[in-house]
Amino acid sequence: MSLALSLPYWAETTIKTVIILAVIPASALTLGYVFLMKTMAHMQSRLGPMEPGGFHGWYQLIGDGVKFIQKEDIIPEEADRAIFALAPTVVLVSTFLLFVVIPAGPRLVVENLDTGVFFALAVSSLSVIGVLMAGWASANKYSLLGGLRAAGQLIAYELPLVLAVVGVVMQAGTMSLQGIVNFQQHGKIFGFGGIGLPLILTQFVGFLLFIAASQAELTQAPFDMPLAESELVAGYTTEYTGFRFLFFYMAETATAFALAAIAATLFLGGWSVPWVHGSAADVLGPFILGAKVMLVAFLIYWIRFTYPRFREDQLQAFAWKYLIPISLANILVTAVFKVVF
């Protein structure tokens, strides 16, 4: 974040860290409130989440949070205590790192890395280590199965996730997220620059692939086998209680937010709309990005509430037999167009 006033390095870093640390629970709360509570309640005719606190059940989420914190912190006797305790943190760190590269305005970014896309996708898969740690350390068969499933799944879907983005990178000619946003802001559709060039128009297939793969990365239905409450009780989180479980929960929701933000950045123009420039964009950018994130997140959660879950082998088949070939074809077509035009 290149602030106008110059601060010493340590101060700047501290402020950035604090901001991200604040963004994670804030984003998790937002998505949790808007989608996990209200949208779900409406979609599923649930009555409970609409009751507490009067208007639209606004108190429900706070109640849930307080409940989690109040709960006893139980560590199973057979568990590997250190790893068991560390696992949620590892998952949360991966989410934390994701937020580092997401730009919310021309200057509102923690670190504008040249290889921003690469970095984001790389750190997003760090969480698999935490999940494996949780699954192994719990000393529970359901946890172990869940952890192994999660590992297999996250690795399988890493590939389509990356390949889906390649088209965007080729078209924009940069791996910097900021660069991709700029490309979309200033792009023109056959000479018409009124709406810029949101890459979803040319990379629609890529967008769908990205959403599908990020759904799997988030271990949400229809790809929620690692948690699969009807099969594995709660997968790798079976033995977690209280605030440790809350960590997993928060990490999952915040990662959903982050991946939705990356999708919005890559395909929907991120913080930019073509008629907002300069410092105005720094002020409005977060809101614009936020609106787009909500749009993508709605899609993600809508799918989550609607679909049943795949079986493990069907999930792998889906990744290797469908998503990856399609994304390769998408890259090929993009390359051809890039040369032709």
């Binding site: 979609m43 599923q44 005719s45 649930r46 239905a221 229809p222 929620d224 699969a228 009807s230 509430f305 609607t306 679909y307 049943p308 879950r309």
Partner: peptide, 9 residues
């Protein structure tokens, strides 16, 4: 089967 909505309906 993992579809959470039908049960509420």
């Amino acid at each position: 089967l993992g579809a959470i909505t039908p049960v509420f309906y």
